[in-house]
Amino acid sequence: MATIFEKYEKGLEKTRKGVFAAFIQKIKGPGLPDETFFQEVEELLLEADLGFRTVAQVIETARQKLRSGQTPEEAFHHALLGLLSPSGRYLNLKGEDRPVLLFVGVNGVGKTTTVAKVALRLKEEGMRPLIAAGDTFRAAGSAQMQVWGTKIGVDVVAKPPGHDPAALVYEAIDSADQNGYNALLIDTAGRMHTKKGLMDEIGKIKRIIEKKSGTKPAETLLVVDATTGQNALRQAEIFHDALELTGLILTKVDGSSKGGIVFSLESLYNVPVKLIGMGEGVHHLEMFDPRKFVEALFS
């Protein structure tokens, strides 16, 4: 537990030294906040990708809390924390014979890598996961998943390029059940949420899972790149609409981006970030803990 926390803290260091550090310095400064102060805070939050509306909301809430006697630090701490989803952040793996985890997202966000990371984590926790290499579209998409499978010692169901991904998923579920796997992770091709045909395709894949298993996928996870700006909101909106997301995975948190889009994402769709990707290595996967996330910004 300690190690996970340490790693997590370390990864956030960049965030802390960057814009949020300056932000904290400001709100910890002496005297009562004036308008310049709020303007500066606004800019700092904007630069962290919180987005215009959310920033306005945070500042409004913080003003109220300040009026009711909180310190600037408390006020902003609460204003930000209050935006995050109250839902649980553990992967839903219990209470299912063979949970299916479906990973979706736009192109290049880190789906395939994350599938490998999560599969390894499950394996290390004593489960017997199977991976379905559902990206039969992108050149070598399936090969990429297979290389990861070999690396982490997890079996991968793969088909030749161009194979119908829904059919592949169908077979993977059979294979999982017949061969005693107790978790199925499905990688999917990157799809732009603006392409109706591709969104229909992923809807179909989800329906096949439901039909085959008689139940919804245990997790339908939207993978979001932390460097994404306000478009992440559109992605979440459309994917959520099509698939009823159960969680988000924020990747590339090891980069210089602040990942502030999380605040808007969670407050708008009430879908919690369940995991964060902190690097390209297969162990660079951490739990997302909102308290620590926000606290780390203030400490």
């Binding site: 790149d225 994404t228 700006g229 478009n231 210089s256 981006s257 602040k258 889009i261």
Partner: peptide, 15 residues
């Protein structure tokens, strides 16, 4: 560079 990039695109490009 990705068209969906947020504010950090500036730091990336400058970097």
């Amino acid at each position: 560079a990705d068209a969906m990039a947020g504010q950090d695109a500036v730091n990336v490009a400058a970097g």
